[in-house]
Amino acid sequence: MSQCQGNYDIKKHPCFSADAHGKFGRIHLPVSPVCNIQCRFCKRGFNKSEWRPGVSRALLTPVAAVEVLDRAVKLCPELTVVGIAGPGDTLAGDYALETFRLVHERYPDLIKCLSTNGLLLKEKIASLVEAGVKAITVTMNAVDVKILAQICSHIVCNGQYITGEAAGRWLILAQLAGIEKAVSLGVTVKVNTVLIPGVNDKHVGDIARAAANAGAAFINIIPLIPEHEFRNHRSPDCMEINAARMIAEDYLPVFRHCQQCRADACGIPGGKMDFAEKLYDKRFISFSHG
């Protein structure tokens, strides 16, 4: 498949295409500070040392994010994708949307991409498309409420704090409805599933089937990084990851090159060095959105 549902070439997106991995660059702009769900393995923070989602050197305003992007395109001329992946959820506030509007006005030819838990995707996707977003990754770790209750401790939606299986039911329905709406608007959707041994490792086929039925184009199985409540839980081994990928592949193409990047990553995945260290100085460390 050389083209995705939108009108851009998927082979230029290193997080969606194996052909682009090691060839084209991406930048993650850390403008989203808060999250509206709590996964039991997720621990957000600010540092320079950890290589995992949810961490960043700084938190940027939308205007400062464009300044960082201006510097990034000079450092990495192979950059084709502007993404927002945290350090919180991109749709829990409006900073990501504001950033994409500014970026799209200045760099209309760059692919705009975001990662989200999907809780508010259906409500916000039309505005995101207007701001130039063409690709979205939705993290779906279960489509069974009992399993999701083991992974996600609570959600906050419409001012309601919801826990347990009720939270799982709400989140699953929102994710599937959001994917369907995004695809109907021409957005390419990839699903990320964090593989957690003993929790959702026997459930991957169900997730992939549901994601495919909703219209997702790809699935990405990534290993658990033990943090927070799961800090003593083991990561899956290579055999377990490969087995899960083979099961998922019955329903969706599997992306196999994910590096579980930071929220401020910049560079060519699998290729050139990461340029983030050169992008941030005292001007950008660290802003609080309040």
Results as ranks from 00 to 15, higher is better:
I285D: 00
G118W: 05
G6V: 06
L128R: 03
P53E: 06
Q259M: 14
Q259G: 11
P77N: 06
P269D: 11
E123R: 15
E277T: 12
M1G: 11
H228N: 15
I155E: 01
D206Q: 10
A135S: 02
I285P: 01
L119H: 15
N213M: 15
A18W: 04
E123K: 15
I196H: 00
T90S: 13
H21D: 13
E78P: 08
H289Y: 04
C258N: 14
R283D: 13
C266T: 04
F46E: 09
T193I: 05
R209H: 03
H257C: 12
C4L: 09
G88P: 07
V189I: 02
G22V: 12
P87D: 09
N200F: 09
T137P: 13
V66N: 00
A210Q: 05
S288V: 15
P53D: 03
A20Q: 15
A85P: 07
A96C: 04
V187L: 07
T99H: 00
G6W: 09
G164M: 10
D281Q: 03
T61Y: 03
K122P: 01
S286D: 13
K190S: 11
Q160R: 15
S235Y: 05
N141W: 15
I10H: 11
V156M: 05
Y95M: 02
R106C: 00
Q5F: 15
K146W: 11
W170D: 15
V183H: 08
A217K: 13
A65N: 10
S17I: 12
I247R: 00
N117T: 04
V187H: 03
N47P: 10
N213T: 13
V68G: 04
A18S: 14
V204A: 12
C39M: 10
A85Y: 02
C39F: 10
F41W: 12
A174C: 04
L224A: 11
I179V: 15
P53T: 03
A18C: 09
Q259C: 12
L252D: 06
G159D: 02
M140K: 09
M273L: 12
A72R: 07
L121Y: 08
G186P: 13
V145G: 06
V81N: 05
P236I: 00
Q5D: 10
A243T: 04
L185T: 08
V194N: 00
L173I: 08
D250K: 09
K124A: 04
N220W: 11
V55Q: 01
I196Y: 05
K202F: 02
V156P: 08
K12L: 10
L185Y: 02
A167R: 11
R245Q: 15
H257T: 05
I285G: 02
R262K: 04
N141T: 08
K272C: 12
R234W: 07
I219V: 12
T188K: 04
A208W: 01
F218K: 09
K181F: 14
D206V: 01
A149Y: 09
A20Y: 08
P14W: 10
A58C: 08
E227R: 05
Q150K: 13
D281E: 11
Y251M: 05
A135C: 06
N36E: 14
N232F: 15
T99A: 05
H257Y: 14
K43E: 14
C42W: 02
P30Y: 14
H13V: 14
Q260G: 01
C152P: 01
V55H: 04
D237Y: 01
F100G: 05
T137K: 02
Y95A: 01
